[in-house]
Amino acid sequence: MMLEIKDLRAKIGEKEIIKGLNLNLEKGKVHAIMGPNGAGKSTLSKTIVGHYEVEVTGGDILFKGESIVDMEPEERALKGIFMSFQNPVEVPGVTNAYFLRTAVNAKREYEGKEPLNAAEFLRMAREYAKLLGMKPEMLNRSLNVGFSGGEKKRNEILQMLMLDPDLIILDEIDSGLDIDALKAVSEGINKIKSPEKTFLIITHYSRILEYVKPDYIHILKDGKVVKTGGYELVKKLEAEGYKAIEEEQ
């Protein structure tokens, strides 16, 4: 099992948002979480990566069998958890390339590997950037500063490819993307897909799921997983909406 979430409870401020959630993510599989606004989708992903606003009040999260709820965000990252942010923050004055190299080398150091030198790093970064249809200049710009919605998402996927994580959480990766960007992003995702990796796709549309076929669909409502099924659930959702699924229970 890649990730096991057991009876998880979490709050932001005074408000409990995750209310006894159970979820298992299998190695090599693509899981998708869907749910109406306010169901707790974003809070769940924030909880997995250790956002400072989220307080875990009960339950546990095991990554490859090890509890991560008390770990620092960077520790979780180094162990192989990656999240693509719905709206990545702008960091002025820090160039994309400098940031990426620092991150890649932090991971290499953690794995006991030699750091990449500037030339090796650039070769790799440029290759992936090309795959994602990003101009090489993007590497010299300040991190996310003035990036369009599509550029930000491509840049998230670039980081994913460079860091080669095992658990990949994609938070609303398809929101605000035009068809070209969506294709480029999907291509990046499919490139890294392997029996060793697990995906958790958080979305409230089914658009991205046409490009990256999920093995499991989980429906999240009011801080809990209320239904799990195969791809057919997506079709049902499209046809009947969340309400129909709620009523089934």
Binding site: H51, P73, E74, R76, V91, P92, V94, A103, A106
Partner: peptide, 27 residues
């Protein structure tokens, strides 16, 4: 938020802060 973003990419807190402050000055 900036510190958190860098940390989710495996950069430790101190390093992340330093990068952000130097970036802020670099402008």
């Amino acid at each position: 938020e900036e510190v958190f973003y860098l940390r989710t990419r495996g950069i430790n807190e101190e390093e992340a802060k330093k990068m952000i402050v130097l970036g802020f000055m670099r402008e």
